[in-house]
Simulated assay, not measured.
Amino acid sequence: MSKSLKIGDLEVKIPVVQGGMGVGISLSGLAGNVSACGGLGVISTAQIGWREPDFYEKPFEANFRAIEKEIKKARELAKGGVLGVNIMVATQRYEEYVKSAVKAGIDIVISGAGLPIDLPKYVEGSKTKIAPIVSSLKSLTVICRMWERKYQTAPDLVVIEGPKAGGHLGFSREELETVTDEAYDDVIVSIIEKVKEYSEKFSKKIPVVVAGGIYERKDMEHVMKLGADGVQMGTRFVTTKECDADEAYKQSYIKAKKEDIKIVQSPVGMPGRAILNPFLEKVKTEKCKIKHCYQCIVTCDKKTIPYCITEALVNAAEGRVDEGLLFCGENAYRADKIETVAEIMEEFR
């Protein structure tokens, strides 16, 4: 039986964190059910308000409103379980996203796609825990040093996201093509050792979970042998009945073959992993007309981008899969059926 994951005074009965997947893939339906089954359910705030009537004109207001709505709905499903949000550091008005989630009473903010240097300031005075996502020892060290110097604090949880993860990745394209499993295991161990130093310094247990390529129980057992306290898993949860994505999105994973899963260059400047489809074939040679800016990522330059990532992700989430960007982890091709969150959590218990 797996040990529970303790994050300060929070206890996650099964040490599985469900990865935050935007736009509209992990909302209250998926996150609430993962929490109810003993895991840590995570809502992605990336363009979370795309279904709000004023999203086109006022994306920020729509998103902040939707954060509150989705957290409330997830709480109703979670049966007292632990809930988190994933907020990308690269999000425009990042601070306000964090404060919206804190105000709505979220248990933990998980943050990557950049270094969340001032995250401790944004949760000040609340019970909300904070967890950076890191891919290297260097990024963890920078964050921990800055948090110690500026805020006299350390993370409550650390998420190590490896090169097999889905969506935007914290690696160069060259690293993604050359890094081996064995070499990255060494990186995981080095990060865990550094986290232990900060655990001792701040007299608190800082658990570490590993993400990227986690698909079945043996993957969890492998990283726990390296010293991890649990895992974060996104791709496996996409093909569940409870996932918030459209059925066509889920079927794209089930139909995908191993050779369909590609490293792509996101228009916001980071490499990512996605399923090859007519949309990705089209944007290789053709620039899409940018009709509107949805104010998503700070690194986006609408004059030079080949397509609007918000539009591409919304299309995918709503089931227009041939016109959308289908982010996925390396193991998406292994999905062969729709299952339930409860069945997955039982496997990891």
Results as ranks from 00 to 15, higher is better:
38 G>M: 05
38 G>Q: 07
38 G>W: 06
38 G>K: 05
38 G>P: 07
39 G>L: 05
39 G>M: 06
39 G>I: 05
40 L>Q: 11
40 L>A: 12
40 L>S: 10
40 L>K: 11
41 G>N: 10
41 G>Y: 09
41 G>T: 08
41 G>S: 11
41 G>L: 09
41 G>A: 13
42 V>C: 15
42 V>H: 10
42 V>W: 08
42 V>M: 14
42 V>S: 12
43 I>F: 13
43 I>S: 10
44 S>C: 15
44 S>E: 07
44 S>H: 12
44 S>I: 09
44 S>K: 10
45 T>D: 11
45 T>A: 14
45 T>Y: 13
45 T>S: 15
45 T>N: 11
45 T>P: 13
46 A>K: 09
46 A>R: 09
46 A>F: 14
46 A>D: 11
46 A>N: 13
47 Q>R: 12
47 Q>C: 15
47 Q>M: 14
47 Q>E: 11
47 Q>T: 08
48 I>V: 15
48 I>H: 05
48 I>F: 08
48 I>E: 05
48 I>K: 05
48 I>D: 05
49 G>M: 02
49 G>F: 00
49 G>W: 00
49 G>E: 00
50 W>S: 06
50 W>M: 08
50 W>Q: 03
51 R>M: 10
51 R>P: 02
51 R>F: 06
51 R>K: 15
52 E>D: 14
52 E>H: 14
52 E>A: 10
52 E>Y: 08
52 E>N: 14
53 P>T: 02
53 P>N: 04
53 P>M: 01
53 P>L: 01
53 P>I: 01
54 D>F: 12
54 D>A: 05
54 D>T: 13
55 F>Q: 03
56 Y>V: 13
56 Y>L: 13
56 Y>F: 15
57 E>H: 08
57 E>T: 05
57 E>D: 12
57 E>M: 06
57 E>V: 00
58 K>F: 11
58 K>A: 07
58 K>L: 08
58 K>D: 10
58 K>M: 07
58 K>V: 04
59 P>L: 03
59 P>V: 04
59 P>A: 02
59 P>Y: 03
60 F>E: 07
60 F>K: 09
60 F>I: 04
61 E>G: 11
61 E>F: 11
61 E>T: 15
62 A>Q: 05
62 A>V: 12
62 A>S: 15
62 A>Y: 05
62 A>R: 04
62 A>P: 07
63 N>A: 02
63 N>D: 09
63 N>Q: 01
63 N>M: 03
64 F>G: 01
64 F>N: 01
64 F>C: 02
65 R>W: 06
65 R>K: 15
65 R>Y: 09
65 R>E: 09
66 A>C: 00
67 I>F: 05
67 I>W: 02
68 E>W: 08
68 E>P: 03
68 E>Y: 10
68 E>L: 04
68 E>Q: 12
68 E>S: 14
69 K>S: 11
69 K>D: 10
69 K>C: 05
70 E>R: 02
70 E>K: 01
70 E>Q: 13
70 E>L: 03
70 E>C: 06
71 I>P: 00
71 I>R: 00
71 I>Y: 00
71 I>Q: 00
71 I>F: 01
71 I>M: 01
72 K>M: 08
72 K>P: 00
